[in-house]
Every structure is written in C-alpha cells, then in structure tokens.
Design a protein around this nucleic acid. Structure first.
Length: 570
RNA sequence: GGACACGUGGCCCAGCUGGAUAAGGCGGUGGCCUCCUAAGCCACAGAUCGCGGGUUCGAAUCCUGCCGUGUCCGCCA
C-alpha cells in the first residue's frame, strides 16, 4: 500500500534512528504484510538484532511503542506491523487523487506473418500485447500500438507464388479435400487463402519439381532487393489474409494505431546504408562466400556467436531489417516494448546487442511461452490446432446457453449481446491470468470456464454494482463516513491496492498481476455486497452507496484495462 | 551437445528484488436464495514448494549439481 508507506516512512525513520539504526537500507525490507490479518505493511526486525544486541522481538516492541500517527502499529514475532487506519483509508479511497504516469510508449505486438488465421497459440501474443497497451493507457501513458507487417521474404513469397500458380482444384487435391473449404469460415479470407499456402508448402516438401523452389527463390530475392512489382504482388497476396486476421482481433477488442511494413526499410535504402555502417564495426567479419556477420561473442553472447546480417549475394536478412526497424522505432518513442514468443529470444538478443553497438538502447521485451494442446504442439498440418475463430464461436455458444438458463426475461438479441461479451472476455482472461513465461496446455473446459477465477466472475460483481446504481438511479448524495464494517475495511484495502498493482503490472510488463488483482477486488466487493446493503426498505445508505459507486468505477476501469467488457447486466 | 525458460495439494495457478502458520481457483464433502442478479456466498478436507548440496539469523525465493518439460542454436522468417 503505497499511500500508507508514504505516511509511515518519516516517523519510522525517526524511531529507527533513535534506537541506533542509521541510513535507509531498511527501506527495502519494509514490504506488504504477508499475513493480511497482521496489517498492511511490515518491517522484519531480524537484521537489526546483531547490531543492537537485542532480540528481534524486543526491537519490534520498542519500535511499536515509540511510533504513533494516523495508523495502527503493533509488533508480533519480530515483525513491526503497520495497519491503515479505517477512517483515514476511507478518506483516501473515496476522495483521494493519484498521480498518473504520462510516458510515451510504443508497443509492438502480434506482428504475425500474414499467411493464415490465428490459432490460440499465435493469439497469445495479440492478447498479451493488447492488454499491455490498455494497462499502459489506464496508467496514463501515451501509447502507440504497432503491428510490424512482414510483407516480404519467404513466407509471403510462398503465398504469392501459390496464389498465382495454383487453382482451387489443385489446392483441394493437394490438401486431399473433396469439396473445398466448407463450414463457418468458408467466406473468411484468411481461412480461404491459407489453403493455398498450405498446398504450396506440401508441394515444396514432396515435389521433385525443383522449379517451384527456384521460382519462389526468385520472388523472395526480388522482394529483398526492393523490387516494386514483386512487392506489389506480395501485397495483393497477403492483404486479404491480414484483413481476415484483423477481423478476428477486432472481435477480441484488439486494434492497432499503426502498421509498418518491413519492406519500407529496404525500399527507402536504410537497410543497405545500415549494412555499410555495420562494416565499420570492430566486431564485423566476412565469411568465405562474402556473407557478412557480427561476432557478438565479443559482446557476451554465448553459443553461436556469429550474427549474419548480409547474405553472400548482398541481400539483407530478416534480423537486419529488424535492426533498421528498431532504430526507426527509437525515433518514434522514448520507450519501446516488444511482445515476442520465446522462440525469438536469441534473435531479439542479437538485435539488441547490435543496437547497443550503434549506441541505441535495448528495448523492453515481454517473452511468452507457447500454448500446447493435450495432444502436443499446435500444428496446422497434423490438424492439432484450435483456431481463435472457433474458440470465440464456442465461447459465445456456451455463454449463450448459460445466459438462457439464468435469464428467462431476455430476448434472443439481448442474450446474444451478453454471450458475445462474456465469451470474448472469458477467452482473453484465461490467457492473461497466467504469467507469460509459463507455457500452458489449452483445454476447452478451462478456456470456457465461466466461474471461479474467470472474467465472468469479475463481470458479475460489476453488474451487481450497476444493478444497485440503477435501482438508486441518481448520483451519490451528501454523506458522512459511517461505521466501517469489516467487509468495508477489506474492500477499502483492496481498492487502495488498485494503483499499486497497476503500477507494478505496467512497470514489469506483467498483465497477470493486474488481472489477478481484479479478482481480489471483485471478491472484496462481493463480501461488501453480502454484508452491507445499500438499499434497505426503500432507504438508501448514502455512505454505502458512495462505496459501491466508487468500487463500480474501479471495476469498470480495471476491466477496460484488461479487455474484459464491463456489462451493466448479465 | 550448448544456451535460455519452466517444475508449487488429484488438476490449474499466485508468490520467486530472501522474511511470520505457502495465497487463490477447479474438482471433492457439507451448508446458504420470503432480503440490492446464487455466473454468487460460507465451512471442511487436501502441499516432502522436482531431487541433492551450499550461502544466511531466516530459502518456494539466491548459488550449485542432477532429473523432467519447453524453446532456440539456418547466409529461414
């Protein structure tokens, strides 16, 4: 609780000084109480024992009796505990103001190759990234959400080749499908076009016809040299796919401010001039066939230390363009955050070390582990894949059936509206509630869980507050802070943590911290709802109403911060 | 083989800039709707924090060895 910390720091320092503890090395030991029942902040006194020749117990006792202020102090088992005064806390929570951050931040996320629909694994990036965007905005930062479009190189090359060389019939035959794409997504462009890509991949692998590889190679080569016509052809190929992908993201509430094409840096010449600059570096080297690299082993990289940035034929590589891209990004914003899969760790390190070499800073990176399926790795080819579009449909359907059971008063249209919000929120929440560096196995029953640690749990608390708001249907009147019931005190403590958790979540790039916090806030609200009725026999308790309204706003803001939709009724 | 992650009750997961009896959820058992939406609430049961060493007044947390899982080690993206 940061507000409490500010309050006690001075008296605590004085008390410590009086017993012979100088300096402020103890400040980092002052942390949140492990035991909630003991207080909000605790100072373990074990470290002072030797210096003072007293037991930690004694020290804590002495300190507790010498400190006083608008807070509770106590000692227990060698710990000095501080608890927020209920009345003080009520004032802070109901009337306090918080300082907001206002940094400029550029967050690059998703940036998926535009060659096919999102499966849940690929979508983890987009959901984590968008949540970080939202949390930064909630925190007050000026955020730009950016998608780096991979519009050149092999993947798009294969796609473009397939679209201009394969017919619908050929694709179906190669993929061994009789009647072509059927079902729900037969009109969605990413699902349609990915089949051409898949067919081409099979041809490349199985066919003895080496012309295919040669033709694709020519296209890729041309794109890497900035050939206008080829790049245009590539764009025609990937654009509809990307549109289909963005449609899925839009359904998840994910949008971008800017799209930057990889080819930009080839076409405008920055990549080739950058490659010339590389040659002046001390760690620069040239391989036998004329390929160029930097020896990053000299900068602490372990394992394979050569970072190749230029092929023997003089063309650039993906990572080279990524360096150029990052130099450009540093001109757009003072703070860069990238969201990347753990498979990009080495590549990201190479880019960062190279940037450092030119005097640029290292961007912040949030790495996330992959989502597996019970049957193993996600693989489109083996049919081990869960498309985000399918997951969202299923989530909607399940939510609709729950709503239908619970609410017989609603029209089909209202049911659909609620089901969509619940479905999307639940899907997002199940991905962001776990730490990004934890790989997890996708299970339908968990992804579609609407109780316990889930988005609907939080949404439900919020609708309760909305329901009260609707019932009273006016703003909060004059009130005095009344008796502070245990549940109210706990709710205040939870509310006071809002900005602490938001700040932590944003500064550490860990969305799950704030996502899990909202669960605590909702739980605390539920206890308040149970114990303290705002309206009773037609009378409104203004103090309670003020608390409920404040909590409602916090829940709403917090939910928006993680992309969970704050419905007013469900 | 090397590098980097991860390993916490039957299952999922928080805690890991060292601090008090390891926090939640699912599942299990038992209870709560004449009272602002029961997608809720309450109670109970359930943990050698992968294994072995070390550092420390104190280790789930730091160091080290081993085991297991994942990712990477392309002049691919």
């Amino acid at each position: 609780m940061y507000i409490l910390r500010e309050l006690i720091l001075e008296p605590l320092q004085k008390a410590l000084f009086d017993i012979g503890i100088d300096g402020n090395s103890w400040e980092k030991m002052l942390g949140p109480s492990r035991e909630k029942s003991q207080g909000d902040l605790s100072l373990p006194c074990f470290a002072f024992a030797k210096q003072l020749g007293k037991s930690p117990n004694e020290i804590a006792e002495i300190l507790s009796s010498s400190i006083s202020g608008e807070f509770g102090v106590s000692s227990n088992g060698g710990y000095l505990n501080f608890a927020a005064d209920p009345f003080w806390l009520a004032n802070k929570v109901l009337f306090g103001d918080v300082e907001r951050s206002n940094k400029s931040v550029l967050i690059e996320h998703t940036s998926a190759n535009p060659n096919g629909p999102f499966h849940v694994g690929r979508a983890r990036n987009a959901i984590l990234g968008d949540t970080l965007v939202r949390l930064n905005r909630l925190h007050g930062n000026d955020v730009r959400a950016e998608y780096y479009v991979d519009d050149m190189g092999k993947q798009v090359g294969v796609l473009a080749w397939a679209l201009s060389n394969l017919s619908e019939e050929q694709v179906n035959k190669i993929l061994d499908i009789q009647e072509g794409l059927s079902g729900k997504w037969s009109n969605k462009k990413d699902h349609i076009i990915v089949r051409y890509y898949q067919a081409a991949q099979i041809l490349r692998k199985d066919s003895l016809d080496s012309n295919i590889e040669e033709e694709i190679g020519k296209l890729v080569h041309a794109s890497e040299h900035g050939d206008d016509e080829v790049l245009k052809k590539f764009e025609e190929a990937y654009k509809p796919v990307l549109e289909g992908m963005l449609e899925t993201l839009l359904r998840l509430g994910i949008t971008f401010d800017t799209f930057t094409k990889e080819s930009k840096f080839v076409v405008d010449g920055t990549v080739s001039s950058l490659m010339e600059d590389f040659e002046s570096l001390e760690i620069h080297g040239v391989a036998e066939n004329g390929a160029h690299f930097l020896d990053l082993g000299k900068r602490g990289l372990k394992g394979k230390t050569e970072f190749y940035y230029r092929r023997g034929d003089g063309s650039s590589l993906y990572a080279t363009r990524d360096v150029a891209y990052h130099m450009w990004k540093w001109k757009q914003s003072d703070n860069l955050i990238n969201i990347l899969g753990e498979d990009h760790k080495l590549q990201s390190r190479q880019v960062s070390l190279t940037l450092n070499e030119f005097g640029y800073n290292t961007p912040e990176v949030m790495f996330y582990a992959f989502i597996k399926l019970p049957e193993g790795k996600m693989s489109t080819r083996k049919g081990h894949v869960v498309f985000m579009d399918d997951l969202l449909e299923e989530a909607h359907a399940q939510a609709a059936s729950v709503v239908k059971n619970l609410r017989t008063d609603l029209s089909q249209e209202e049911i659909d509206f609620i089901a969509e919000a619940v479905g999307v929120s639940a899907v997002r929440y199940n991905i962001i509630k776990v730490s990004p560096d934890k790989g997890f196995t996708f299970r339908w029953e968990e992804a579609l869980s609407f109780e316990g640690e889930s988005a609907p749990f939080i949404m439900y608390s919020h609708t309760r507050a909305c329901s009260i708001s609707k019932r009273v249907s006016r703003s909060v009147g004059n009130f005095e802070i009344g008796e502070i019931h245990k549940s109210i005190y706990e709710l205040f403590r939870a509310m006071a943590a809002f900005h602490d958790k938001l700040d932590l979540s944003v500064s550490e790039n860990k969305p799950h911290i704030f996502a899990l916090y909202l669960l605590e806030l909702a739980t605390a609200y539920n206890a308040f709802y149970r114990d303290c009725h705002v309206t009773r026999d037609g009378q409104v308790n203004e103090f309670y109403y003020a608390i409920s309204e404040k909590a409602r706003e916090m829940l709403r803001d917090g939910m928006n911060g993680i992309g969970v939709i704050p419905l007013e009724s469900m």
